[in-house]
Amino acid sequence: MRRALAILLVLAVVATAAFWWLSRPELLPDAAFAGLSGDPERGELVFWAAGCASCHAAPGASGEDRLVLVGGRPFETEFGTFVAPNISMDVEDGIGGWSLPEFANAMLRGVAPDGRHYYPAFPYTAYRKATLEDVADLHAFMETLPAAERANDPHDLGFPFNIRRGIGLWKRLAQADGWAVEDELTAEEERGRYLAEALAHCGECHTPRDALGVLDRGRWLAGAPNPSGDGRIPNITPAALDWSQQDIAGYLASGFTPSFDTVGGTMAAVVQSLGNLPREDLDAIAAYLARVRPVE
């Protein structure tokens, strides 16, 4: 009996150690930042491509107010309610005091400066494919944006999703380093792939997920239930999206569909951001979408 207890105790210690080891935060090596300095002008395009304002601007913000990244927008999901944090330049409430390595580890590894994992409502599994140069440029641009006071609200999550350390295990399942579209692409299609798969993180809403919230890459961009309840996020593979490339780029630029309806729902904020990109980039996204595997 005593022996059995001892074995159980050892097993528990081993399991805890294994959990702790497997769920540890992984950071970028310091050497990666050698000689890197951000260009704020280039960073503005990264900012609009990455859609930062879509989630982190105040709910309902428009125009210049979308550059005030005060957070506060709630996201109701099946795991609980996430609240977008303040990522303005406020030193107390926002990210005003962050170094480039801290910022890059947040964006590319989903790890906070204090070593905790971020919840993947923050699309770092997509941003992971972004270049460090783009992240440095983005950081330089965001340093030009205003500071805004607003203390962060806690997320409202049930067990076991409220255990942050467990996200380390989830990352092992969910993070994929390869591109979803691996075919030989033209330079324009490659640019579109980089924008769509990394920065604009289209797959986060348009690709369905399994029960653990891991993207089903076999049904890349094939549409998914709307995480906030009503209706579906549409299938945008060539099997379902029959718009011309000109239609797609025009929609991303202006919000008008080919039948002159206008963009709505959560896509409205996406278009407000992407509309700031040069037309070549929107054409590139359209060219990439034509190369996505058709899924009914």
């Binding site: 309902g60 428009s62 709307n226 009503d230 209706g231 579906r232 996020i233 549409p234 202006s254 919000g255 008008f256 206008t262 963009v263 709505g264 729902g265 959560t266 896509m267 409205a268 904020a269 278009v271 407000q272």
Partner: peptide
């Protein structure tokens, strides 16, 4: 278009 879209964002469900 901005006014159309702002209302669709708040008041219209996806298809």
């Amino acid at each position: 278009g901005g006014v159309c879209s702002a209302c669709h964002e708040a008041n219209r469900a996806p298809e």
